[in-house]
Design a protein around this nucleic acid. Structure first.
Lengths: 220, 220
DNA sequence: ACTAATTTTTAGACTTGCCTAAATTTTGTT
DNA sequence: AACAAAATTTAGGCAAGTCTAAAAATTAGT
């Protein structure tokens, strides 16, 4: 049985690997987990012994197949718990992350499979992230960042890149939810901000906001 | 924040205190937790420093008010999770104990209070044990062991003393569930076994079975 | 009441995860 | 290419929780 700590390392490395071609560096992992680089080095040796990562001193770290499998199972559990918390217990989408961080370590495939059925086999979590199936397969959508939409193009909001409390609450204030239609009215090249029209009204989104919103382009 | 280990010690001491006037002994605790006496002694010193137990060397151990509060909160969580697993995820009553042992350590009053509401404020868990309220208050019923019923007396099955897989599965086989009416037809003084009539048919219960079933007496 | 058996405690050691400080390797700059 | 800066690793330590073996206290038996 991997400990909570091992699970957290593997999950962090998975997250870092996903967004870059390079292996995850010691410092990146330390940052992600709030520990010190020396601690990480130590742990990498142990994870390597357990065949969860590919590790050579001073090189970056990547997950082995076994490591990826573990990471995806934790992510699956995390996201299903988030759906449960939002759908069944009425938590808001900005409140569920920390709880899911605890619940994801509960060790029972039977439990999580029943939970999945209870929730009616959701494909995405409350932030729009895909839920891996029991084999670790993740469905991909052809979503793009809102920054990729040209003036006049329309889309549906499908997810957020940054699911920090602050960003999610900002979206709440603007009454923007997953599934909402959205249309880019105007792009200011100066600061890359965009005027967008939603269900309700027009907003001006900063470049940062646009980078953090996923949409599926709607063809005319 | 108490660690999982601390929570488990406190819960074990609570359970031992409940069934005897004496404080829990080092060996009893070690047995209950599957550790060695030396380890327990060590831990008792630490729990005492944290004001969770009353401890004097070579005397038994009892919980302080603070310790009881912690124990009851863990028990509350354990039992609510059990209800969830049985009511919502269709686990059987003999399957939920180990999972609840993990889930009871999830640290969030908000979560457990919402769960309680989601489950419609159940008063008893799937084994008939009362669920402490958020202040730690437990409702008591005037239930007695089936051994306390005289020949001819009737009752309703309200709980089990021993919630081991084996005993619960034995009851399943006999189709005996909480809430079932039951009547003692005959008592064999020789081995204290009883012939009882349930909903469906008559069974002969050994003394051991009768000791482990709680019933509420029905007046005529 | 005294010794034997049992229980409990102490002592010393191990593992997991974490830290700081110092050494080493890699990377970047001129 | 050589040196400085940054990243990484090594070394040595600490806390929590566990163990075994041995010592001390309590309890039980005659």
């Amino acid at each position: 049985m991997p400990s909570f700590t091992v699970e957290n390392y593997v999950k962090a490395i998975y997250g870092l690997n996903k967004h870059s071609e390079e292996g995850a560096s010691t410092n990146q992992i330390a940052d992600a987990l709030g520990t010190k680089a020396a601690t990480v080095t130590d742990m990498l040796r142990k994870l390597s012994e357990r065949k969860l990562i590919n590790y050579k001193k001073y090189q970056g770290t990547t997950l082995t197949e076994k490591g990826k499998e573990l990471a995806l199972n934790i992510i699956r559990k995390h996201r299903l718990w988030e759906v449960f918390l939002v759908e069944k217990l009425d938590f808001k989408w900005d409140e569920v992350h920390d709880l899911a961080e605890e619940l994801e370590h509960i060790n029972s495939d039977e439990l999580i499979n029943r939970m999945e059925a209870f929730l009616d086999h959701p494909k995405f979590d409350p932030h729009g992230d895909p839920i891996p199936d029991r084999k670790g397969k993740v469905e991909s959508r052809n979503q793009v960042a809102l920054t990729d939409l040209k003036s006049g193009e329309k889309g549906l909001v499908t997810g957020v890149v940054d699911s920090s409390k602050e960003f999610l609450q900002y979206l709440d204030t603007l009454k923007i939810e997953l599934g909402n239609p959205i249309e880019v009215k105007q792009i200011f090249e100066y600061d890359k901000s965009r005027v967008v029209k939603t269900n309700i009204r027009e907003h001006t989104f900063s470049h940062q906001v646009c980078k953090n919103l996923f949409v599926i382009k709607q063809e005319e």
